[in-house]
Nucleic acid binder design. Structure first.
Lengths: 349, 349
DNA sequence: TTGTATGCGTTATCAG
DNA sequence: CTGATAACGCATACAA
């Protein structure tokens, strides 16, 4: 039995479609008698409104698009998407996900699909190309960037990376570490996009420097390793962190702590340390970033958590406001914070 | 500029809407002249078809629903969803995801949303309640289960868990292990659903027994630990594996190898072994299942891989066939297989 | 308090 | 080869 229509409900209840619509939307005057008959009819034939017909008529799909990067490699993206979806559900919305894997061409295709399906707004975590984002503006569809701003073509709800990173550095310094290495995304390779001002990678790196200075520790370029977060092609996605750490451990005066700006990088670091026969945190401490893989690693990873749930929920509420009012609410800067687990300890003597 | 309509294209090109539709769908006779004018008009006003109008008219949404379990805890689900989506994209489809976290009530809500949005079919990875699945049947929407069959109310594309599990056991036995522990999902707690015949958990457990027997090893109930795969509420999702392993290590005659039937369980096992000051694989070998977290763990985990990409792709193609022909294609039993990494080695002397 | 009528943007069926 | 025209299922302005 293909779902019935509103008209069939009306017939069965002996009223007009307008009346059925009124009881369904719980607005407008309806007599108790009519209401009861309609409700009975709805139940009897198992009527379910056709969302597509409704959307066509209202020129609103109650659907938003969510563009994501590297969804099967980095759990960060699924998490943000999950919470955005959760919030959307609470407001009668559904989301369409699209994974661009960092490729502008894929992103363009995804955006075209979104436009064809008439999403009411689009969330980017993260955006790749300004031109693509402009496609949405041209179509009159609001767009919002989450976690970082990579293009000036859309507003962004960003994360304060500095606060959490400084906590991490202070934690390490407080444990007596004097040689702290940094494994991070290269600001030149990652995230620069077309937005002016510091990128996420700039901020994390700057916080490393500031944390060193605050603790009165010298900066040593041998302890600085910048590159990609992970490779999408290689099977062991943490191999970037693994190789950097191998190099670090080969140093004559090796570090006693490593601050990696992604849990995936930290996962690779833990593998390299283990392979070298050293123990974490006894011989070397490790801190990650994101709080994605952290609780599953050995030992459980101390890490700077990103506010993934807030990002998703607040992000959705922001686009909803844009859809309904045409204006963007203020965009808060969401804090990151250190989560202590078992991969950090006192510096070895 | 809100996206233009087909009628506007028609006006601009000086033809009827029917002609525009003909060139857009590349079917039916259109003169080269008319075709050129239409194409120019489409380009000029940046026309994009309205998928909702099309769907309403064709009574087909080119959308499928995908019900998932524990999406932010177990990467397995995102992976299957990703590949199903990828295949869907190749066929002009999009998927709606819905996460039920194992709750029948949530699943019901998700299915209702799917029906309202008129998805053309639904994929379950995995289903919770037979009643919910029947809701789809009542609405005339084809449904297919992926990875395991938990209800007789829909066909299923399942995985052959036995072949991979036997490989794992043979690998361990070949390395000289004689005391091999098993940490797995409890057939009574997980997966029994309403389907007759052995569950996934039955199969994995049976393969453990068969592997033992094949290697001429005795079965020792002290080495058998059954429970849940993970807890959705606890932060460290691998805590189940951690606690089982602590118990195993406390045994007077402890095992030299552990076969855990989920990478998340194995992650917890690795943590417990590490905490006990033992090394993997020197003191104890560990094998997981799924190949999700495996490459990120320390040491990289030997595991039985599930065919996640095939599950997603073949699953989508099967529902597409059901949508188009009304009949289900044959449902293959997809093999699992052992992936060797660094967590297994010769049994200690 | 209720009903009628129109249109949302397509597609499909007809004639021409 | 092309153009009217009628649905698809719902929402809403307007009348009654």
């Amino acid at each position: 039995m293909k779902s019935a229509t509103l008209m069939q409900v009306a017939e069965r209840a002996g009223v007009s479609t307008a009346t059925v619509a009124r009881v369904l939307k719980a607005q407008g005057y309806v007599s108790d008698d009519a209401r009861a008959r309609v409700e009975a009819a709805v139940k009897a034939i198992g009527y379910r409104p056709n969302a597509m017909a409704r959307s066509l008529r209202q020129r609103r799909s109650f659907t938003i698009g969510h563009m994501l990067d590297a969804i099967i490699v980095n759990p960060f993206f699924v998490n943000v998407a999950h919470w955005a979806e959760e919030e959307a559900l609470d407001h009668g919305y559904k989301t369409f996900l699209f994974n661009h894997n960092g490729l502008a061409e894929r992103e363009r295709i995804g955006i075209e699909r979104f436009i064809e399906r008439r999403v009411d707004a689009v969330l980017f975590t993260n955006a790749v190309s300004t031109d693509n984002v402009r496609l949405l503006k041209a179509a009159g569809i609001p767009a919002l960037q989450l976690e970082r701003s990579r293009t000036p073509a859309a507003p962004a709800i960003r994360v304060d990376n500095t606060v959490g990173a400084l906590q991490a550095m202070a934690h390490l310094a407080g444990l007596g570490h004097r040689r702290i290495a940094f494994i991070g995304g290269d600001p030149e390779l990652i995230g620069r996009g077309e937005t002016a001002g510091p990128t996420v990678e700039d901020d994390r790196l700057a916080a490393y420097g500031a944390g060193l200075a605050a603790a009165g520790l010298p900066f040593d370029s041998a302890l600085l390793r910048l590159g990609k977060y992970y490779s999408l092609s290689e099977s062991g996605s943490g191999s970037e962190g693994y190789h950097h750490t191998r190099a670090l451990l080969a140093l004559a005066d090796r570090p006693t702590a490593i601050f990696a700006t992604c849990d995936i990088l930290a996962a690779g670091a833990l593998q390299a340390v283990y392979e070298a026969g050293l123990r974490v945190p006894d011989d070397i401490s490790v801190i990650g970033f994101d709080d994605t893989l952290a609780a599953n690693l050995t030992p459980q990873l101390t890490t700077v958590a990103q506010p993934m749930e807030q990002l998703g929920r607040i992000g959705f509420r922001a686009v909803l406001a844009a859809i309904e009012t045409g204006a963007w609410p203020e965009q808060p800067l969401l804090p990151s914070h250190l989560v202590l687990r078992r991969s950090t300890g006192p510096a070895p003597l």
